[in-house]
Design a protein around this nucleic acid. Structure first.
Lengths: 249, 249
DNA sequence: CGCCCTATTGACCCTTGTCAATGCGCGTGG
DNA sequence: CCACGCGCATTGACAAGGGTCAATAGGGCG
């Protein structure tokens, strides 16, 4: 499929991500690269992790796209996070806690595995790796907070616009946005609605508004932002929350 | 003021909280008790932490009640968490990240301080303490997720009921619920609305519904749940998310 | 060719927000 | 002791953002 390439990039994504939030010695970089040996592959819509299980390894999304969600008692669900290459699927391993949500691959995706014992050895030699992981967890938390801020009080149009700005920002950090401002976004409108607390129909209508205004085009699982600055201005997007206090780029 | 006592209990709250999620040796318990020497006191509505700052210590709420919130660009705000005695005010210290939100004391509150260097020494001797802290962070995360689940898709009535069930559950774990099912809840209706993504007026109306149904009485900063089971049934409350995979109590 | 999933549209309705007024309790200054 | 002001709870009337239902359309695929 044509889109496939859009969701891929080099296997060094995790490394780049970690390096973005904490400085890594060359020794640490080598350790990370050599340790991510096992890779699992998932088909579209397959479970990467299941609610309630416990996992003895760190799972890093290397290629593809995924989301986490939790069901409501009435059968509807809330998507709580989107994962892009470089993201850690679940931070439960930090405390040997059970995973509290399902993680689903969206298109075909690859997940790198890292044994906890192996990680422990790595961290022993290079403590900054643990700081990096914890900082990723902090960013993750901050991202969810911002989603709560959206769902709790932004208008439908702003929620959609804000999410597009966030994805544009996050994907650009892992080189998945091309020069024209396009990036792969393999969701259905229904799934976006599950994340933003809006119905499919309403998502559709707001997308059309953005399209008419020339602020966002969503076609063939690809989003193009012709004028990212204008879209940011529309919803007052401020990426500070994605950086955990680390200075810009 | 009469209510004061409702929000207080012994200074060993943190210890009890940690012990609830991870087993602690007596040595570890002693270390914790002796390390929490400095205590800061806050008046009602005073800032405990400010967005964007960085903090070199762990802050534990020992007595009182607090909340975290983030502002929207339009001046409204979203409350992202409520803190009860035993809760850690912010987990940014884990990764030396900046605090990403404001923490406000609700009634007069006391906060215990723990130097990071002191913590490091403690963890060296008793690694289970770090596991406990990380597990608290996981529970915290899970709690915010559940709030997102509420705001994203539950009806107003269920949101309110669910929050009351959650507070009842959490406060009962630190012995702040009395035999009649009453507990101190020092919020205004407007503040509860800021947490649940509802207007003050609407909060008021839903509270009245619960009152008429005999499911919850809110008077004088005190909430009474005459029939907690019935309230739980109403909103399908399931406290699993508050336990991070640790078996019940 | 037919099915299924997703996007799109229209009509209608309902939950929730907004605005504005009233009341109530409490603290303060006169 | 009383008048005033203020913050918070409560009510009513009205508006509106967004949900629901149902129908249509457009691929992609077996």
């Amino acid at each position: 499929m044509m889109m496939e390439s859009t969701f891929s990039n080099s296997g060094k994504t995790w490394l780049r991500r970690l390096a973005a939030v904490v400085s890594l010695s060359s020794g640490a970089q080598a350790a990370i690269l050599s340790s991510l040996t096992q890779t699992r592959h998932f088909r579209a819509r397959e479970h990467i992790m299941r609610d309630g299980t416990r996992d003895g390894s760190v799972q890093v999304l290397l290629r593809g796209f995924a989301y986490r969600h939790r069901y409501r008692p009435d059968g509807t669900r809330q998507i709580t996070a989107f994962l892009v290459p470089g993201d850690i699927c679940d931070f439960g391993f930090l405390s040997h806690s059970a995973v509290s949500q399902n993680v689903i691959a969206l298109p075909a995706s690859s997940v790198g595995q890292l044994d906890l014992s192996q990680l422990a050895g790595m961290v022993e030699k290079h403590p900054e790796i643990m700081t990096g992981i914890l900082r990723c967890a902090a960013i993750e938390q901050s991202t969810m907070q911002e989603l709560l801020v959206s769902v709790g009080g932004r208008t439908a149009l702003h929620r959609v616009a804000h999410m597009l700005c966030e994805m544009h920002y996050r994907l650009s950090k892992v080189d998945l946005v091309d020069a024209e401002g396009s990036f792969g976004f393999p969701l259905t409108q229904s799934e976006l609605g599950d994340a933003l607390g809006l119905s499919t129909v309403h998502i559709n209508r707001k997308i059309q508004v953005l399209r008419r205004e020339g602020l966002a085009i969503w076609r063939d699982k690809t989003i193009t932002l012709p004028d990212p600055q204008a879209l940011r201005a529309l919803c007052s997007f401020d990426p500070t929350y994605l950086r955990a206090g680390v200075p810009a780029h």
